[in-house]
Write a protein that binds this DNA or RNA. Structure first.
Lengths: 101, 101
DNA sequence: CAATTATATGAACATCTATTCATATAATAC
DNA sequence: GTATTATATGAATAGATGTTCATATAATTG
């Protein structure tokens, strides 16, 4: 890839980075992440909090989990989701800072 | 919006936040941002560096500028683009950190 | 076991988006 | 003025993506 200068990360890394931000780039997923900002919640509670269907929330939780932005544990019939680590808080926070200029 | 608990930012803010991340969520735009990480470049140089058409780069620069991720100045026939502020560096860096786990 | 509750999944559809192509604008050189 | 170079823009197309609907899986209760 001689078009890239020395300081450019590998193309695959930049692709993965874009994929990561793409996950944050949907309002439903952002809302879910903020629901989970400082607590864990089960799927039904998230759906109710956001006024969305269980199915839609579940689909998006799958995306969030595949990208390691949330983790989950089962408790009986319920699955409790929470933010995966502090990077998620940081990224959301940086985004907010930029919005506020 | 009584479905939201007290700590949730307003829905409009969360929407704007998602829109911001959406801008970072495209590999072409991420590549452009990394090209500009520590230097300013004109459109043609960015296009050449990435092996893309001028038109495609120009369209994406417009998106980046509309969202205040880059700024530009004219010098003769050329337009030189650079990152708008340090938030852009921070957000890219946080994303990278998350990728590296 | 069957019934119920909670969640997950697959397919279909509608919407959004990035690129390409053609063309327009802007600045310079002659 | 015209020609050239650099960039921007509008329309069209192709591909990606989020929601809905129907259904499947999983755990509990009786």
């Amino acid at each position: 890839m001689e078009e890239y200068d020395d300081r450019m990360p590998p193309e695959e890394t930049l692709y993965d980075l874009a994929e990561l931000f793409k996950v944050f780039g949907d309002s439903t997923r952002v809302k879910i992440l903020y629901c989970l900002f400082d607590t864990e919640l089960c799927v039904g509670d998230i759906a109710q909090a956001l006024g969305m269907t269980q199915t839609a929330v579940s689909h998006q939780l799958r995306v969030l989990k595949a990208n390691k932005l949330v983790k989950c544990r089962r408790d009986g019939k319920s699955m409790f989701y929470s933010l995966a680590d502090d990077h998620v808080h940081s990224i959301l926070g940086q985004g907010m800072d930029h919005l506020m200029e």
